[in-house]
């Protein structure tokens, strides 16, 4: 009985998930479409390079979106779909570059800048020896002034 109630409660969401949509020449469920959008949103359109594959109107972007959707429908995991495209276009297709020997300098740059700034501040503070003590004449003048 309890199981049936649960199923009844889940029915509307299941119906929603099963609604079919057609995008870029591929018919898929709404859930599959959402998954495809998540994959494509992280990938760069190689024609209009500031845009994601999902946002671009370029013909190549449309074709790649179609390929992503076909693979989603075929049940290929998102990580593998991403790897399929990286294999062909290189890591440049990833909007967020991965940490690799090619990109470690990019990721290390904030720490390097902070360190360099710290060293510069330390060098400036340390530099310049304390002024020599006042001579007797200067001491006398100081007393007069005060």
């Amino acid at each position: 009985m309890k199981r049936w109630l649960l199923l009844l409660a889940l029915l509307p969401s299941m119906a929603l998930a099963q609604a079919m949509v057609t995008r870029d020449g591929v018919t898929l469920t709404q859930a599959q479409e959402t998954e495809a959008e998540q994959i494509g949103g992280k990938l760069r359109c190689l024609v209009c390079q500031g845009e994601s594959l999902e946002a671009s109107d370029a013909k190549l972007a449309k074709q790649l979106r179609g390929i992503i959707r076909q693979q989603v429908v075929a049940g290929i995991p998102p990580r593998q779909i991403q790897a399929y495209l990286v294999h062909r276009y290189g890591i440049f297709i990833l909007l967020k570059p991965p940490f690799s020997p090619l990109t470690w300098l990019l990721y290390a740059m904030p720490a390097i800048a902070l360190l360099a700034g710290g060293v510069a501040v330390w060098a400036v503070r340390r530099g310049g020896a304390p002024p020599p003590p006042l001579t007797d004449g200067e001491q006398a003048r100081l007393r007069d002034l005060l």
Binding site: L46, L60, Q63, L64, I67, R88, Y89
Partner: peptide
């Protein structure tokens, strides 16, 4: 179809 282009990583 442009599919061979995708396999070659050709983008234009």
């Amino acid at each position: 179809s442009g599919l061979t282009a995708v396999n070659w990583g050709v983008y234009g």
